[in-house]
């Protein structure tokens, strides 16, 4: 017990004293996850919109496929990506394994189905009249899409926030394709795992607190934004 409180105290000290290693890990975590979500979101929204607003063969199958992919464990995605990026793999020549780029790719794959599924639900709940009204008032389809996105913005923001929440806390994929290398691919979850296994609880707890606050904040954000959307329907 004494150990724990001592470790917690030094955890606070580490965070507040601006320990450079810890803040480097935190900023890497954010950098990788922000990039992944930033890249994944536009494509995911477009696909979600098409799935919600157009009828074409295999549409339903595609929707359930994305819903199913949502539950693929991160390690499985990490494993597949590892095999693809490793020296003898099909994309081995790109030399991406154990780089932060590989982590970004992994997190894109991880967040994509979630983004599509949640955005699809928002678009589907959207009022068809919003689209028709935009068009009849002279909006070109691309502009009408933005109008529609604005109308369902709370649901879409909730999707993005949930996507970020999923990738920033995942460990399996980052560990496998990033390799947990200090100064280059060590992010919050992989650092926590490492420090804990070494018995260095202070750093683990400090990073754990950051992640916990972040996750709670993001989750609160998701429910606030989802609730806001409901007010207008």
């Amino acid at each position: 017990m004494n150990d724990l409180s001592q470790a917690s105290a030094s955890a606070f000290h580490l965070l507040l004293s601006g320990n450079s290693e810890i803040w480097e890990i935190i900023s890497l975590s954010f950098g990788v996850s922000f990039s992944a979500i930033l890249i994944a979101t536009p494509f995911a929204l477009l696909i979600a919109f098409v799935l919600a607003f157009f009828k074409f063969p295999f549409r339903r199958a595609l929707i359930s496929l994305f819903n199913t992919f949502m539950s693929v464990p991160a390690v499985i995605i990490g494993l597949s990506l590892y095999l693809i990026l490793s020296r003898s793999g099909p994309l081995g020549d790109l030399r991406l394994l154990f780089t932060s780029k590989a982590m970004i790719i992994g997190q894109i794959m991880l967040s994509f189905p979630l983004l599509v599924a949640m955005a699809h639900a928002s678009f589907q709940a959207a009022d068809r009249r919003a689209w028709e009204t935009a068009i009849t008032l002279g909006a070109r389809p691309f502009r009408a899409l933005f109008t529609l996105m604005y109308e369902v913005r709370f649901g879409l923001i909730a999707a993005v926030v949930a996507g970020f929440g999923r990738v920033v806390a995942e460990i399996g994929c980052s560990m496998m394709v990033g390799g947990n290398i200090l100064h280059s691919t060590r992010n919050i979850p992989t650092a926590i795992a490492l420090e804990t296994s070494k018995g260095e609880f202070a750093q683990g707890i400090a990073l754990g607190m950051v992640l916990l606050v972040l996750s709670l904040g993001l989750n609160a954000g998701v429910s606030i934004f989802q609730g806001k959307g409901d007010l207008h329907t």
Binding site: R129, A130, E132, T133, T136, T147, Y150
Partner: peptide, 15 residues
């Protein structure tokens, strides 16, 4: 689409 405007039975106003 440019010259004809359709108004819904229950018109939709943007948020």
């Amino acid at each position: 689409q440019k010259d004809i405007i359709y108004l819904h039975q229950q018109p939709y106003l943007f948020d």
